[in-house]
Nucleic acid binder design. Structure first.
Length: 483
RNA sequence: GGUCCCAUCGUCUAGUGGCCCAGGACGCUGGCCUCUCACGCCGGAGACACGGGUUCGAACCCCGUUGGGACCA
């Protein structure tokens, strides 16, 4: 790779320009993130532009989905959203300016004809591009027609890509591309160039699926007399089968990951490391990302989405977050409790403190908010069910004496804290000639209905004396009922 | 089919001619810790696609091959 002295074109103005034809997927989110970080790093401006000229495929749902995804990831834009659909007269005007200066012309070739001629050219071993028939035909403006760019570019067009180095295209393969369709709507390449130059974009950072469009756009910029932005084409994100990420690779929209219990910070940290690196560092705070991010360490080969690593990052962010910070994000993953142990489990509710403590005990053991929500269940609901796993682990009628013994000791314990509880368990263990596990395990079953939980002392504290005792009594009853 | 891009452990990557018989991370795996499950800690297996050059020296530079991908059709 050639080396990039990253030019500092001042001021830095970048844009994220999604087509609202679907949700914000991982690749789009990463493109948005790179643009955002580049802007923040250089103190520039991050512009959001919605490329919705394709009225057939663009939807309101997609637009709001994209905004929602960006908001969730914390990618705040500084200006926009601008909609191409609201700039139609601008494209029309620009096309007519080119027309009157002789840099564009009307063409009324029919699609079928074009196709036939293209095939003929291919058969003759020529490139299948537009043959320029209408260049000098002077098609009258009252006939249905498209407006074509009169491409007079000769030689090579080189894209001085900040990531790939010089990418050379032969101008011969460039077409007289359509600027305006018969229905007066602009084509993608035309609208993009008009917008990028009107918005004075300094750096075009986009997926490399657009690199083949770039020489056409450059030819347009030049004809328009506009200075070129810098281009940076970032590699794609592929699915496990190494093809472009799409629906068949499972969840692709970023908001789907929010619903699966992923944290925004984890998601951002994961996608930023796809194609970008900063030495050996894996974990980045938002501030570090802004401080370190630049284009010189963006790689040029495509990467494959790896859900395992995302999961690991999510677990990392969960265990390092405070229970307090996790509370609001966790609440949506708790079912509506019918008989909450802690009433008012709202963020500001009276039980918030209790929930936070439970989250703090659990967050290091679960990898997503969904798992966290499930794990919290026995602590929120006094009508939890006993897991079928329990009896396999020795939670049987034989546990009754141990539980009875513990109940007596707990009733007379004066201070309900970690040290005193540990003391009780220790003496019970010794008096009964058991191992700690043989006491803790049935107790865990009685208190949570589960075979796994945070440390047994923490569970006792979380539930408190009354709830702990009532659960122990209930367990004795439950086990006694067994034949 | 045409144009363009890409190529380091399974995956994300460090590496910009000597520091590399290639480092980190996820995953996998052996162990320690331990009341369960996690976490954490210590260890292990695991890669420079291939072939030619250039050079005293190449993962790094050049050419080709192969493989993959994107776009257009």
């Amino acid at each position: 790779m050639t080396s990039p002295t990253i030019p500092s074109k001042d001021p830095v103005r970048v844009r994220f320009a999604p087509s609202p034809t679907g949700a914000l997927h991982l690749g789009g989110a990463r493109t948005a993130l790179f643009n955002y970080l580049f802007a923040r790093h250089h103190g520039g401006e991050f512009i959001l532009r919605v490329e919705d000229t394709d009225r057939e495929r663009s939807t309101e749902e997609s637009v709001s989905g994209i905004f929602e995804g960006m908001n969730w990831l914390g990618l705040e834009w500084d200006s926009g959203p601008f909609y191409q659909s609201q700039r139609m007269e601008r494209y029309l005007e620009a096309a007519h300016t080119l027309l009157s200066s002789g840099q564009a012309y009307r063409c009324d070739c029919l699609p079928d004809d074009l196709e036939a001629r293209r095939k003929a050219a291919m058969a003759a071993g020529l490139p299948p591009k537009y043959d320029g028939r209408c260049r000098s035909r002077n098609v009258p403006s009252d006939k249905p027609h498209v407006i074509r760019f009169l491409n007079s570019r000769k030689g090579n067009v080189v894209v001085a890509d900040l990531i790939r180095g010089d990418v050379v295209f032969d101008a011969e393969v460039l077409d007289d591309l359509v600027l305006l369709r018969t229905d007066r709507t602009p084509t993608y390449n035309f609208a993009v160039v008009i917008d990028d130059s009107d918005m004075e974009i300094s750096h075009v950072i986009r997926g490399d699926d657009h690199i083949n469009n770039t020489p056409r756009q450059i030819a347009l910029f030049e004809t328009l007399g506009e200075s070129l932005p810098f281009f940076a084409h970032i590699p794609m994100i592929h699915g496990t089968d190494r093809t472009k990420l799409s629906k068949r690779h499972g969840a692709t929209s970023v908001t789907a990951y929010r619903e699966m219990g992923y944290l925004s910070d984890a998601m951002v940290n994961y996608i930023v490391r796809l194609g970008w690196s900063h030495k050996d560092q894996e974990i980045f705070s938002r501030a570090e990302l802004i401080e370190f991010f630049d284009l010189d360490h963006v790689g040029s080969s495509p990467s494959i989405f790896n859900p395992e690593k995302l999961l690991w990052l999510n677990a990392h962010y969960m265990k390092t977050a405070s229970g307090k910070d996790l509370l609001a994000q966790t609440l949506p993953f708790l079912p509506e409790e019918k008989d909450p142990l802690y009433p008012g489990t709202k963020e500001t509710g009276p039980a918030a403190e209790q929930i936070i403590r439970a989250i703090d005990e659990w967050k290091g053991r679960t990898r997503t908010l969904v798992e966290l929500g499930e794990s919290l269940q026995p602590f929120l609901d006094r009508h939890f069910a006993y897991s079928p796993e329990l009896s396999k682990k020795g939670f049987t009628a034989e546990s009754i004496p141990v539980l009875r013994d513990l109940a007596v000791r707990f009733e007379s314990l004066d201070v309900w804290d970690h040290d005193h509880l540990a003391g009780v368990l220790k003496s019970a263990t010794e008096d009964l000639s058991l191992k700690l596990g043989q006491v803790a395990s049935p107790l865990r079953g009685a208190l949570t209905g589960q075979t796994v939980s945070p440390g047994i002392h923490e569970v006792l504290i979380l539930l408190g004396r009354n709830e702990s005792l009532s659960r122990i009594r209930r367990a004795i009853e439950h086990l006694g009922e067994k034949p």
